[in-house]
Design a protein around this nucleic acid. Structure first.
Lengths: 213, 213
DNA sequence: TAGATTGTTAATCGATTAACAATC
DNA sequence: TAGATTGTTAATCGATTAACAATC
């Protein structure tokens, strides 16, 4: 894999945004786009766009034209590893877990959730995808060689689930339970902290409502 | 409101994390905590903890003791505005929308989702909370004086829903549709970009799996 | 050619960390 | 008192932006 190791997290985080934008642009027939056009539409700076794209693009942008949309899409997909979908399981078939299991959109972002697990199986399938009891978790992960687990169980159960996933062979964990997980250093965890996002929103909203009084 | 305007987004984003940690600590009977203990448990630096807490705490930490847990909890709750819950509506009663409507956990983070709206009402209520048809959106928002809207509709419908929310009086939008919304400058939008989080996770995971080969 | 646009080097900005004096 | 811990000032680090030469 020729993914350069020196690409910043900030840049990586923006990549799915570029991809989404470029896919939309391609759909309406755009073939070339300048960094300034992309920047304006995405509300970021043009220099940043050029720097980001230079890091992942296999062909440089052309002066006078800009970047070739199709090529860029392929390069970003490759960079993000979307050319081969990661199979994943979700543990916790509550509201969020079921929403994830039923959401096809993840396929556009390189993720293929193939099953859910829960202590109590209330529905055998969600939109055609199976929900299994926890007892089957380990063997399923081993058989299917799953490397990515998504945790959507309540906080109190999260650490235990996390340990089980790792024990069974999962190496990356996407954690939606609102708690700090402790894992060996060889495991990657990414916490999704909706509360942090909400805090920023509420804060700005409070300032705004304050002003308008 | 005496919220200091000069607190960075980075600090604000960490506040819900501190709050969660401190609430847990209080539950197990901790009365004082040093910045180094908090830092170790939360996997951030102790100086950062002291700086962050100094910005929101009404009483300074005590040398030799640390910070008083109960007081800190109250200060952060106040800072984040959790002392008065924001009423919100969610538009889009698909998987994610229903998950949000049914999730009581938001109450712990200052948010009270009181109703959902959708074009097609398949269930009249979710965990006791009402789902209404889109036709009722405007009047409901006006009557209940709702200032915060959550968008969980598909991408294609997001901008229209956004416009309707703003038209009816919403001032802050939490957007889960994965598209860039265009809004007047007087409106606050916070996009939740799961794809960005996933990109970081997959990237690190790929590096990891690569190494272990 | 002229002009739009890229890619790169240097400057700026913001956030985190290091060092250390102040305090209970 | 001695020592742990805070709060603050200065240094570092990383990311973004500004400036501008290179290019088609």
């Amino acid at each position: 894999m020729e993914r350069p190791a020196n690409i910043s997290n900030a840049t990586i985080s923006r990549m799915p945004g570029y991809l989404r934008y470029l896919r939309d642009a391609k759909l309406v027939g755009r073939e070339y786009l300048s960094s300034s056009t992309i920047a304006k539409d995405m509300a970021i700076s043009a220099v940043l766009v050029r720097k980001d794209l230079a890091l992942v693009s296999s062909v440089p942008g052309k002066p006078r034209y800009g970047f070739e949309v199709g090529g860029l899409i392929r390069d970003i997909e490759k960079f993000l590893g979307y050319d081969n979908l990661s199979a994943a399981v979700v543990v916790g078939a509550g509201g969020l877990g079921k929403a994830f299991l039923g959401y096809e959109g993840f396929q556009n972002y390189g993720l293929n959730i193939i099953a859910a697990f829960d202590q109590q199986v209330r529905e055998e399938t969600v939109r055609g995808k199976p929900v299994y009891p926890m007892e089957r978790l380990s063997s399923f992960i081993e058989e299917q060689n799953i490397k990515l687990g998504i945790i959507t169980v309540p906080k109190a159960a999260a650490q235990k689930v996390c340990d089980q996933l790792i024990e069974a062979g999962v190496r990356g964990i996407w954690n939606f339970a609102n708690t700090q997980l402790s894992v060996p250093r060889t495991i990657v965890v990414k916490n999704v902290d909706l509360a942090a996002s909400l805090a920023l929103l509420s804060g700005e909203l409070a300032n705004l409502l304050q002003q308008s009084k």
